[in-house]
Structures are given as C-alpha cells and as structure tokens.
Design a protein around this nucleic acid. Structure first.
Length: 271
DNA sequence: ACTGGCTCCTGAGGGC
DNA sequence: TGCCCTCAGGAGCCAG
C-alpha cells in the first residue's frame, strides 16, 4: 500500500523520465477512479511540457504551463515508466504518453486512486488547501501536535492519521511511531503531554525517513505486487506482529481495531 | 467543532 | 480443486 515513502520513492523514480518531456498523448482506458478523470485533462494535458514533478502529502503533482495534474495512488495504485507500445493489462487505466517514446502508466486494481486536473494554483485545490504540514518539514514538530490536540478526545492514533493535523502518516507508520514514542494508541489525543508529543514527532520523522531511505526495496516489492515490502519484514516493530514478542520487553504484541483500522501495540511499552 | 461510521473497489485468504 | 464469503484500506463525506 503506498504510504508517503512509497509515493516519494515513486516521485524520485519517475522524475528523470518525465521532467522536461512533452506529453504526446493520453490513453485513458478506465475513467472511473476515486473520482472520474475529468475531460478537461484530455483537452489540456497533451502538448504540455512537464515542468515539475512534486509531491504534497500522498499526492503527486505534475506541473505544466497550462495547469497541474494531481495523481493519488489510493491503496493499490502504482506508476511505472513503460515503452508506449507496451500492451496494457487489466488494471492499467491510464498512460500519459511522452515524446520520448515512453509512457507514464497508472495501474490501480482497486481504483481508490485519482487523476485530476486543475488550472488554479494547485496549493489552492480543495484536496490540498486544508492539509496539515509535511511530516519531514520543519513546520512539523511536537509543539504543533500538542497545540492541535487541545480538547481533542479521539484516540491519538486516529489523531496523527488525520491529514488535517499532519499528512502522510498511514496506518502502518502510525502504529510504529506510537510504539517508538511509548504512547498507547487509544490514549485520547488531548491527554498526551507536550514532552511525549515531541518524542512522537521525532518518531514519525524517523520512521518515514528510514522508510524513504529503503524506498527502492519497498517499491520493487510493492510494484511486484505482494504489497509487503521487504523493508517492513526486517524492521517492523509492532505492525502485523499480533502475538509475536515485543522486541523491547518480550510481551506478546496486541491487536485492536481503532477507528476501523487494525492497530498493534505493546501493553508494557506503551501507556 | 468533533466524532464515528460509511463508501468506493478487487485480490487475497480462509473455510468447507 | 474450487467456490463462496469476508476483509483490508486512503480519505472524503455526511449525519448526529
């Protein structure tokens, strides 16, 4: 499942093939993703030069002079560079054909992803305008979390997964970061101290940065289709380790559904 | 203003 | 071997 590190790895992977290239055409085989791909994209994108390949939260942004294409990989989406003549598989919904003879191909079996188009400054797009800070930026720290958590009663795990608070903390990394910070996932967000939010912010940065560093491995397996990156197998502390011994204290890792999401934690190490 | 629940979709995995 | 059922999951949306 593409979390922020996978999206960033995808961005870095496609950038050299896409940046500065002209869009020669589009092949849209399935328009119905999370939202229908707008017809405006078909009209506007061909002929445009890709000026930037950016990421905001888990959105990939392709800037052109005419507007910006907004891509989201949902939970099963992937982007690859393929020869434009490569035959399309069942879930290869979109090819953005480039003047290099290659195409940027969007594959997404579950179709939770999106491909949108905006002519306004993309930061003002309704999907982006209310997003919280990037977790790896200096705008994100413990003070920010602490301030945002005042009077909030929901579980701290759901709190840090809310993209209005901080972007890019998906289900796996939320469990991992809370373990690293020693915070129990169901603790009300407003009942976590400033000091512990400092530790949590550091843990979030640490786990995301480490994952980006191993992004190559993650992406290969991810694209390979098993959805279980090699990186995770090596280094996951609690996620998907139900009943296995805590790496810190040996107690069996517990599992619980929090806000319709599977969550994992150690009762000894997290309070 | 918050919060919890629903929704989209399909492949994987379990039970028999 | 194969069929059927259930479930996961990002994140917008809506009702209470």
């Amino acid at each position: 499942m593409p979390e922020l590190p996978e999206v960033e790895t995808t961005r870095r992977g496609i950038e050299p093939h896409v940046l500065g290239r002209c869009v020669a055409g589009l092949a849209i085989r399935q328009r119905r993703l999370r939202w229908p791909i707008p017809r405006a994209l078909d009209r506007a994108l061909p002929g445009q030069i890709i000026r930037n390949v950016r990421r905001r939260a888990k959105y990939l942004l392709l800037d052109t002079d005419a507007g910006t294409a907004i891509l989201h990989l949902g939970m099963s989406g992937s982007l690859r560079i393929v020869p434009s003549a490569a035959p399309a598989g069942k879930h290869d919904h979109v090819d953005i054909q480039l003047d290099s003879g290659q195409s940027l191909r969007l594959t997404d079996p579950r179709r939770f992803g999106a491909l949108l188009w905006t002519t306004a400054p993309v930061e003002q797009h309704e999907l982006l305008v209310d997003l919280g800070p990037e977790p790896l930026s200096d705008n994100f720290d413990g003070a920010h979390l602490f301030a945002a958590a005042r009077n909030r009663k929901l579980a701290v795990k759901q709190f840090i997964m809310d993209s209005h608070i901080v972007v890019g903390v998906g289900n796996i990394y939320a469990s991992e970061a809370l373990f690293m910070a020693g915070i129990h996932p169901t603790r009300p967000a407003g009942r976590v101290s400033r000091e512990r939010y400092e530790a949590l912010a550091k843990a979030i940065k640490q786990v995301l940065a480490a994952s980006i560093r191993m992004g190559g491995t993650t992406l290969r397996n991810f694209v390979g289709g098993d959805g279980r990156p090699g990186y995770f197998k090596q280094t996951l502390r609690v996620y998907d380790r139900l009943g296995e011994p805590c790496r810190q204290c040996g107690a069996p890792i517990r599992g619980k559904r929090i806000g319709q999401r599977s969550s994992f934690y150690c009762v000894n190490c997290q309070r």
